[in-house]
Amino acid sequence: EGGATSGRFFSPGYPQNYPPGILCAYRFVARPGERVRLDFHRVSLGGRPNASRCLDGRLDDKDILVVTGGEQRDAPLLARFTSYCDARAKEQVVSPAGYLLLRFEANSDDVTGQGFAGRFGFVAMHRLQPTAPIGYGLGAPRSGPGTDKDLFNYTMYFDSRRQRQGVIASLHFPNAYPKLCRITYQFTGQPGETVRVSFESFQLDEGPTG
Protein backbone atom coordinates (compact mmCIF):
# COMPACT_ATOMS: atom_id res chain seq x y z
CA GLU A 1 0.00 0.00 0.00
CA GLY A 2 1.38 3.40 -0.96
CA GLY A 3 4.79 2.00 -1.87
CA ALA A 4 6.23 0.01 -4.75
CA THR A 5 4.03 -0.54 -7.78
CA SER A 6 5.10 -4.20 -7.95
CA GLY A 7 7.02 -6.76 -5.95
CA ARG A 8 7.16 -10.34 -4.73
CA PHE A 9 5.37 -12.24 -1.95
CA PHE A 10 6.14 -15.57 -0.28
CA SER A 11 4.90 -18.00 2.31
CA PRO A 12 6.87 -17.95 5.60
CA GLY A 13 10.30 -19.52 5.23
CA TYR A 14 10.13 -19.87 1.44
CA PRO A 15 11.85 -21.59 -0.38
CA GLN A 16 12.11 -23.86 2.67
CA ASN A 17 8.94 -25.53 3.92
CA TYR A 18 6.59 -23.34 5.92
CA PRO A 19 6.07 -24.21 9.60
CA PRO A 20 2.92 -26.07 10.73
CA GLY A 21 0.06 -24.42 12.59
CA ILE A 22 0.24 -20.91 11.14
CA LEU A 23 -2.38 -18.40 9.97
CA CYS A 24 -1.14 -15.56 7.74
CA ALA A 25 -2.90 -12.66 6.02
CA TYR A 26 -1.52 -10.55 3.16
CA ARG A 27 -3.45 -7.38 2.35
CA PHE A 28 -2.95 -5.52 -0.94
CA VAL A 29 -4.43 -2.02 -1.22
CA ALA A 30 -4.30 -0.12 -4.53
CA ARG A 31 -4.76 3.57 -5.18
CA PRO A 32 -8.06 4.93 -6.61
CA GLY A 33 -8.50 3.83 -10.21
CA GLU A 34 -6.21 0.80 -9.85
CA ARG A 35 -6.63 -2.95 -9.47
CA VAL A 36 -4.43 -5.45 -7.64
CA ARG A 37 -2.88 -8.26 -9.69
CA LEU A 38 -1.39 -11.39 -8.13
CA ASP A 39 0.59 -13.87 -10.22
CA PHE A 40 1.22 -17.18 -8.44
CA HIS A 41 4.29 -18.96 -9.80
CA ARG A 42 4.58 -21.84 -7.33
CA VAL A 43 2.04 -23.40 -4.97
CA SER A 44 2.92 -26.51 -2.96
CA LEU A 45 0.88 -27.15 0.19
CA GLY A 46 2.19 -30.54 1.20
CA GLY A 47 -0.35 -32.88 -0.38
CA ARG A 48 -0.59 -35.28 -3.29
CA PRO A 49 -1.07 -33.29 -6.55
CA ASN A 50 -4.42 -33.61 -8.30
CA ALA A 51 -4.85 -30.98 -11.00
CA SER A 52 -8.65 -31.31 -11.19
CA ARG A 53 -8.98 -30.45 -7.48
CA CYS A 54 -6.17 -27.91 -7.11
CA LEU A 55 -8.27 -24.73 -7.29
CA ASP A 56 -11.56 -26.08 -5.97
CA GLY A 57 -10.63 -28.81 -3.51
CA ARG A 58 -12.72 -29.88 -0.56
CA LEU A 59 -13.07 -27.54 2.39
CA ASP A 60 -11.39 -30.01 4.75
CA ASP A 61 -7.99 -29.91 3.02
CA LYS A 62 -5.24 -29.76 5.62
CA ASP A 63 -3.62 -26.56 4.34
CA ILE A 64 -5.45 -23.95 2.29
CA LEU A 65 -4.76 -20.64 0.57
CA VAL A 66 -7.66 -18.36 -0.42
CA VAL A 67 -7.86 -14.98 -2.15
CA THR A 68 -10.91 -12.76 -1.66
CA GLY A 69 -11.92 -9.31 -2.82
CA GLY A 70 -12.50 -8.08 0.74
CA GLU A 71 -12.64 -9.06 4.39
CA GLN A 72 -16.43 -9.08 4.74
CA ARG A 73 -18.22 -12.40 5.13
CA ASP A 74 -19.85 -11.93 1.71
CA ALA A 75 -16.65 -10.91 -0.07
CA PRO A 76 -16.18 -12.62 -3.46
CA LEU A 77 -13.95 -15.69 -3.36
CA LEU A 78 -11.55 -15.33 -6.29
CA ALA A 79 -9.13 -18.25 -5.87
CA ARG A 80 -8.65 -21.23 -3.59
CA PHE A 81 -5.50 -23.35 -3.58
CA THR A 82 -5.40 -26.58 -1.62
CA SER A 83 -3.08 -29.43 -0.74
CA TYR A 84 -3.86 -30.92 -4.18
CA CYS A 85 -1.86 -28.21 -5.99
CA ASP A 86 1.68 -29.02 -7.06
CA ALA A 87 4.67 -26.72 -7.30
CA ARG A 88 3.95 -25.94 -10.94
CA ALA A 89 0.51 -24.47 -10.24
CA LYS A 90 0.13 -21.04 -11.83
CA GLU A 91 -2.77 -18.66 -11.51
CA GLN A 92 -3.42 -14.95 -11.98
CA VAL A 93 -5.92 -13.14 -9.75
CA VAL A 94 -7.14 -9.61 -10.49
CA SER A 95 -9.17 -7.65 -7.92
CA PRO A 96 -12.72 -6.44 -8.71
CA ALA A 97 -11.86 -3.14 -7.02
CA GLY A 98 -8.68 -1.92 -5.35
CA TYR A 99 -8.26 -4.51 -2.60
CA LEU A 100 -7.24 -8.15 -2.25
CA LEU A 101 -6.89 -10.32 0.84
CA LEU A 102 -4.72 -13.44 0.67
CA ARG A 103 -5.17 -15.78 3.62
CA PHE A 104 -3.00 -18.84 4.25
CA GLU A 105 -3.78 -21.40 6.94
CA ALA A 106 -1.68 -24.48 7.75
CA ASN A 107 -2.83 -27.33 9.95
CA SER A 108 -0.80 -28.13 13.07
CA ASP A 109 0.45 -31.48 11.74
CA ASP A 110 3.99 -31.95 10.43
CA VAL A 111 2.97 -32.43 6.78
CA THR A 112 3.89 -29.13 5.12
CA GLY A 113 5.04 -28.05 1.68
CA GLN A 114 7.35 -25.49 0.18
CA GLY A 115 4.46 -23.02 0.20
CA PHE A 116 3.83 -20.39 -2.42
CA ALA A 117 5.60 -17.61 -4.28
CA GLY A 118 4.41 -14.96 -6.68
CA ARG A 119 4.45 -11.35 -7.78
CA PHE A 120 2.02 -8.54 -7.06
CA GLY A 121 1.35 -5.40 -9.02
CA PHE A 122 -0.99 -2.40 -9.06
CA VAL A 123 -2.35 -1.60 -12.52
CA ALA A 124 -4.88 0.82 -14.01
CA MET A 125 -8.42 -0.60 -13.95
CA HIS A 126 -8.90 -0.30 -17.71
CA ARG A 127 -5.86 -2.52 -18.42
CA LEU A 128 -7.15 -5.75 -16.86
CA GLN A 129 -10.52 -7.41 -16.37
CA PRO A 130 -11.24 -8.63 -12.83
CA THR A 131 -11.20 -12.32 -11.98
CA ALA A 132 -14.67 -13.89 -11.97
CA PRO A 133 -15.65 -15.07 -8.46
CA ILE A 134 -15.83 -18.80 -7.82
CA GLY A 135 -18.07 -18.27 -4.78
CA TYR A 136 -18.99 -15.94 -1.98
CA GLY A 137 -18.21 -16.02 1.71
CA LEU A 138 -15.00 -16.45 3.65
CA GLY A 139 -14.74 -19.31 6.15
CA ALA A 140 -13.80 -18.48 9.69
CA PRO A 141 -10.36 -19.64 10.88
CA ARG A 142 -10.30 -23.20 12.21
CA SER A 143 -8.64 -22.05 15.42
CA GLY A 144 -8.15 -18.82 17.32
CA PRO A 145 -9.90 -16.59 19.84
CA GLY A 146 -13.53 -17.48 20.32
CA THR A 147 -13.48 -20.58 18.07
CA ASP A 148 -13.34 -24.29 18.68
CA LYS A 149 -10.03 -25.58 17.31
CA ASP A 150 -11.75 -28.76 16.12
CA LEU A 151 -14.74 -27.05 14.46
CA PHE A 152 -14.70 -26.08 10.79
CA ASN A 153 -17.01 -23.12 10.24
CA TYR A 154 -17.94 -21.92 6.74
CA THR A 155 -20.72 -19.89 5.12
CA MET A 156 -21.78 -20.17 1.47
CA TYR A 157 -23.82 -17.38 -0.11
CA PHE A 158 -26.21 -17.76 -3.05
CA ASP A 159 -27.79 -14.66 -4.61
CA SER A 160 -30.33 -14.83 -7.45
CA ARG A 161 -28.62 -11.87 -9.12
CA ARG A 162 -25.57 -14.06 -9.68
CA GLN A 163 -27.02 -17.57 -9.99
CA ARG A 164 -30.68 -18.53 -10.31
CA GLN A 165 -30.41 -22.29 -9.77
CA GLY A 166 -27.84 -24.92 -8.91
CA VAL A 167 -26.95 -27.92 -6.79
CA ILE A 168 -25.89 -27.96 -3.14
CA ALA A 169 -24.49 -30.86 -1.14
CA SER A 170 -22.98 -31.60 2.23
CA LEU A 171 -19.20 -31.98 2.49
CA HIS A 172 -17.92 -35.20 0.83
CA PHE A 173 -21.38 -36.19 -0.46
CA PRO A 174 -22.27 -38.98 -1.33
CA ASN A 175 -19.74 -40.14 1.29
CA ALA A 176 -20.21 -39.36 4.97
CA TYR A 177 -19.68 -35.76 6.03
CA PRO A 178 -16.82 -35.03 8.50
CA LYS A 179 -17.28 -34.57 12.22
CA LEU A 180 -17.31 -31.16 13.92
CA CYS A 181 -18.28 -28.88 11.06
CA ARG A 182 -20.81 -26.07 10.85
CA ILE A 183 -21.74 -25.16 7.27
CA THR A 184 -24.29 -22.40 6.58
CA TYR A 185 -25.99 -22.02 3.18
CA GLN A 186 -27.59 -18.59 2.78
CA PHE A 187 -30.00 -17.93 -0.12
CA THR A 188 -31.13 -14.43 -1.09
CA GLY A 189 -33.79 -13.63 -3.68
CA GLN A 190 -34.94 -10.32 -5.11
CA PRO A 191 -38.22 -8.51 -4.28
CA GLY A 192 -41.12 -10.65 -5.50
CA GLU A 193 -39.05 -13.86 -5.55
CA THR A 194 -39.16 -16.87 -3.25
CA VAL A 195 -36.42 -19.43 -2.61
CA ARG A 196 -37.08 -23.10 -3.31
CA VAL A 197 -34.84 -25.88 -2.00
CA SER A 198 -35.64 -29.48 -2.99
CA PHE A 199 -33.88 -32.28 -1.11
CA GLU A 200 -33.16 -35.39 -3.15
CA SER A 201 -31.24 -37.19 -0.40
CA PHE A 202 -31.18 -36.61 3.34
CA GLN A 203 -29.44 -38.83 5.91
CA LEU A 204 -28.02 -37.75 9.26
CA ASP A 205 -26.13 -39.65 11.96
CA GLU A 206 -25.93 -43.21 10.74
CA GLY A 207 -22.70 -44.55 12.16
CA PRO A 208 -20.08 -41.91 13.08
CA THR A 209 -21.75 -39.47 10.66
CA GLY A 210 -24.48 -39.63 8.00
Rank of each mutant, 00 (worst) to 15 (best):
F199P: 06
L100Q: 02
G13D: 04
G57S: 02
P49A: 02
R27M: 13
E91R: 02
Q114Y: 02
R161D: 07
R73I: 14
G115E: 03
F187I: 04
A176V: 12
Q203N: 12
V167Q: 00
E105M: 04
N153C: 04
L180E: 07
G3W: 05
G189R: 00
H126W: 08
S198H: 07
R103M: 03
R27D: 15
T209W: 04
G13E: 00
G115P: 14
G137S: 01
V123P: 03
C181F: 14
V43L: 15
E71L: 10
D74I: 03
F173H: 11
R182D: 10
A87L: 05
Q203V: 15
S6R: 06
A4I: 00
V197G: 03
Q190G: 10
R73P: 11
G115L: 10
P141S: 07
E206W: 04
L171I: 10
P20T: 04
F202W: 09
S44D: 15
Q165L: 03
G166N: 06
P178F: 05
T5G: 15
A169I: 06
G166P: 04
M125S: 14
L101G: 01
V36C: 09
F202T: 09
G207R: 03
M125V: 12
M156K: 07
L204K: 10
G166Y: 09
A117G: 03
F173V: 01
N50A: 13
Q72H: 09
V197E: 00
A176P: 07
R182V: 01
F40P: 13
R142S: 12
L101Q: 00
G144Y: 02
Y177V: 07
D86H: 11
S95A: 13
I22Y: 06
F202N: 14
R53H: 11
L128S: 02
R27K: 10
I22R: 01
L101S: 01
D110K: 02
P174R: 04
Q129C: 07
Y26V: 04
V36E: 02
P208A: 10
Q163T: 09
S198V: 09
T112E: 01
L204T: 14
G33I: 12
G118M: 01
G33N: 04
A75N: 02
F10W: 15
S52V: 08
Q129P: 08
T155M: 07
G47F: 15
F187R: 00
D56H: 10
S143G: 06
F40I: 09
V111N: 08
V195K: 01
G57T: 06
L171C: 05
V43Y: 11
P20F: 05
G70I: 02
A106K: 00
V94A: 03
N50M: 15
D86F: 08
G2K: 08
G98L: 05
D74C: 05
I22H: 04
L171Y: 02
G46T: 11
S198N: 07
L45A: 08
F120T: 06
R119P: 05
H172L: 01
F104W: 06
A89Q: 14
F81Y: 15
Y185W: 11
G113C: 08
L151R: 00
G46I: 12
A106T: 12
F9N: 13
